[in-house]
């Protein structure tokens, strides 16, 4: 991908809010570690919100790093492996109690499965199917509007 800064932010918001939300709706009932009542939606959507908001900050970092690349592109592999740093930060935020609406902590297993699968779904969607409805997206550095 060859994102611009605004393109990155717009794409991030869209991917988390639409693709991430749909996936979270599907996966939450089967997440491990929630005991008899399961993992509440409030918890997973709160994590998703953390990923989205922290992600916007991350985009500034990535954009700065991209400036050192001659091609001014963001290779596919980087958009996959940045899941590691983003996942770690999101976990730290959640564990420190900064995630809204989560008071008694989050089971690590639930967090891992939720975060990793959401990251992969978003990654796969952004690297192909995203182009189907949004024909001009790839020419606009990831801007949707």
């Amino acid at each position: 991908m060859t994102p611009t800064l605004f393109g990155r932010i717009q794409t991030r918001i869209f991917l988390v809010a639409v693709v991430g939300s749909l996936w979270t709706l599907l996966i939450t009932p089967v997440l491990p570690g929630g005991g008899d009542d399961g993992v509440p939606y409030a918890m997973t959507f709160s994590i998703l919100l953390v990923v989205g908001v922290a992600g916007i900050v991350w985009e500034f970092v990535y954009h700065a790093l991209q400036q050192f690349r001659w091609e001014k592109d963001w290779p596919t592999l980087l958009s996959l492996v940045t899941g590691i740093n983003e996942g770690l930060l999101a976990w730290l935020i959640v564990a420190a109690g900064f995630a809204p609406g989560i008071d008694d902590g989050v089971p690590l297993a639930a967090f891992l499965v939720h975060f990793i699968t959401t990251w992969l779904v978003i990654f796969l969607y952004a690297n192909g199917p995203m182009r189907v409805p949004f024909l001009r997206w790839r020419y606009r550095g990831g801007r949707l509007v």
Partner: peptide, 17 residues
């Protein structure tokens, strides 16, 4: 050296802008 005849972002990123 570059991958294509222009840097990639010339087709749809920062360099295009």
């Amino acid at each position: 050296y570059q991958g294509f005849n222009f840097p990639k972002a010339a087709w749809g990123g920062q360099l295009k802008n």
